[in-house]
Simulated scan of single mutants.
Amino acid sequence: MADFTTAKENYVRGVFAAIARRYDLMNTLLSFNRDKYWRRFAVERTGLAAGGRALDVCCGTGMLALELARIAGPEGRVTGLDFCREMLDVATGNVAASPYGRMVELVEGNAMALPFPDDSFDCATIGFALRNVPDIAAVLAEMRRVVRPGGMVVSLELAKPSAPVFKQLYYFYFEQVLPLLGKAGVGVDGPYRWLPESLRRFPHQAAVRDIFTAVGLKEAVYHELTGGIVAVHTGRK
């Protein structure tokens, strides 16, 4: 298990290091600009209030952390954590260019062992990263640990649509067209071929909900967005 964990972490770190500089642009283009709505929807489900404390796990370039900061306001605090230095470098620039620079702290760390005490945050989020971690349950359990009692754990992630015809069209785009667009956008082939592969390996959204429940999160539910290509899972500590 340790060898698998290390191998996957190293592979995923390499994938995101390769695309960090163009990650935000490609997200917007490949999602047809729906990524902003998805992040807003996820943050609305955190229950975060003005002055609150939030953690964004696997924060990448910091876009979800900035959406949390917008809600938390000037008296709030948001911590973004990622294990990819290249992504954090981009996040540093994004935070500095935003109105929320004083409110967001970026930390290099591992989602499998969060470097925070129990009950530290009002909510914890993870965006487009749960399918990339070596152990989904372990990461969700860590997120639950660092959230205060009554706080929310929220995941925004790619999902598996089920509607006939739409499903076939989506998978054709996702598996055949998107990797070609990704290669054209970042200049390398591998990273955007990992995207459909990572979704194939990821559990259906109903199974992810059950993992939320299994790690002790209450009221676990999921919301399918944009025809079910994305799901937002929530659970309460």
Results as ranks from 00 to 15, higher is better:
109 G>I: 10
68 L>G: 05
146 V>I: 03
31 S>P: 03
187 G>N: 12
29 L>S: 04
39 R>P: 11
75 E>A: 15
116 F>D: 00
34 R>I: 07
159 A>Y: 01
139 V>G: 01
198 S>A: 15
29 L>M: 07
145 R>I: 00
189 D>V: 12
60 G>N: 07
124 A>M: 08
201 R>D: 11
145 R>C: 00
71 I>H: 05
173 Y>Q: 06
208 V>E: 04
89 D>K: 14
130 L>A: 11
117 P>Y: 08
203 P>M: 13
132 N>F: 01
199 L>G: 02
147 V>Y: 00
230 V>E: 02
148 R>I: 01
164 P>G: 03
197 E>F: 15
177 V>R: 10
28 T>L: 13
176 Q>T: 09
181 L>N: 03
114 L>A: 00
8 K>T: 06
151 G>S: 06
58 C>Q: 05
3 D>Q: 13
112 M>H: 15
36 K>T: 12
164 P>M: 04
32 F>C: 11
195 L>E: 02
192 Y>M: 08
86 E>M: 06
98 S>G: 06
56 D>Q: 02
88 L>Y: 12
30 L>Y: 06
104 V>S: 13
124 A>H: 03
123 C>P: 00
101 G>W: 12
165 V>W: 15
166 F>I: 08
177 V>E: 06
104 V>A: 14
42 A>F: 10
178 L>C: 07
180 L>V: 14
102 R>D: 12
67 E>N: 08
35 D>N: 10
125 T>R: 03
32 F>Q: 07
183 K>A: 15
113 A>D: 12
52 G>D: 05
227 G>M: 13
116 F>Y: 09
107 V>C: 13
